[in-house]
Design a protein around this nucleic acid. Structure first.
Lengths: 131, 131
DNA sequence: CTCGTGCATCGATGGCTGTCGATGCCCCAT
DNA sequence: ATGGGGCATCGACAGCCATCGATGCACGAG
C-alpha cells in the first residue's frame, strides 16, 4: 500500500558515475510475490525446532512411519501440541497421514523436503557477471 | 518439562504382535535439540515472503550487490521495515553488509543457502529398511 | 560548519503462533 | 451395549513478529 513511484532516482542519475548513484539494474527478475509466499509458507512450517525434530523422528522410525503416541514423549510436549505440529507439517506437504484402527500414522512425503532444498539452491544462485 | 517417562508401552508389548502396539524402534537418533534450534533459526529467517524477495533481488543484482534504497521500492515497504529484514538475514548468515560512503551494500554470503538446502536434503533422508 | 541524505534504531501496535487443559469423536475390546 | 484409549479440535493465553512513523547517527557536498 502507498506504492510511491519514485524509483530510487536511478534513472535520473548520470551513467558511468557510479559513486554518486546506488543503481542496480537487476539482471534477473526478482522472485514473484506468489512464489515468495508459497515458498515462505513451506519454510515457515519447517522453521520450528519441534517440527524439525518430529520430521527427523519420523524419518528415522521403522518403515519411516510413526503415530502420535510415539512422538509426544520424545519431544516432551503435550499430545494436542504434537497433533497441532503434525497438522502443520501435513498441510505444508511434508507429512502424510493414514489412520489405521485407533492410530494415526504419519510418514514423510517422498521428495517434499528435497524440492524445497532444490528451490533454495537454485532460486538464489548468484548470477555471474557474464551479462 | 514434566517428562513423564512412560515410554509409549512399546517395551511392555509382545513382539511380533504389531496390531496391538504402535511401537517405533527409531533406527536413527532424532535430531538433537541444539541442532533443531539452530536450523530452525536459520529457516525462520527465510520463512518470510519479503525476505525471500529481498534475497532474490540481491542475487539478481549487478555484482550481486544492492543497497537499501534499491530495495525499498521493489518490495513496496518502508525503509525501516526493509532495514529490519536485512538485519534479520544478515544475523542469520545469509547476507553480508559493507558500508561505503553513505550507502550500505548487502550481498549474498556464498554457500549459506546451499548449506541449509544440503542439511534439509540430508538430515531427513529416509533410512531404507536395510537394518 | 552546515545542510541534506542514506540508514539504523526506537517505541508502539495489531496480528500471528506455540502451548496447554478440556472436550468430543471414533474405533476396538469386552 | 458399554467402556476405554488414541487422536483432533476448541478456547484461552502469553510471547513473538512484521510493520510503521519518528528519531538519531554518520557521512558527503557545498
Amino acid at each position: 500500500m502507498d506504492v510511491n513511484i519514485d524509483y530510487c532516482r536511478c534513472m535520473t542519475s548520470l551513467p558511468l558515475v557510479e559513486s554518486t548513484a546506488c543503481c542496480v539494474s537487476s539482471g534477473g527478475a526478482p522472485m514473484s510475490v506468489d512464489d515468495a509466499e508459497g515458498l515462505a509458507r513451506r519454510l515457515k512450517a519447517l522453521s520450528d525446532p519441534t517440527r524439525l525434530r518430529l520430521l527427523s523422528i519420523v524419518a528415522g522410525a521403522t518403515e519411516q512411519e510413526a503415530c502420535v503416541c510415539d512422538l509426544t514423549d520424545p519431544v516432551g510436549l503435550s499430545q494436542p501440541t504434537v497433533s497441532h505440529h503434525l497438522k502443520v507439517l501435513t498441510e505444508a506437504g511434508f507429512l502424510s497421514r493414514s489412520k489405521r484402527g485407533t492410530w494415526a500414522y504419519y510418514r514423510l512425503v517422498p521428495g517434499a523436503l528435497d524440492t524445497v532444498a532444490g528451490v533454495l539452491s537454485r532460486q538464489f544462485a548468484a548470477v555471474p557477471p557474464t551479462r
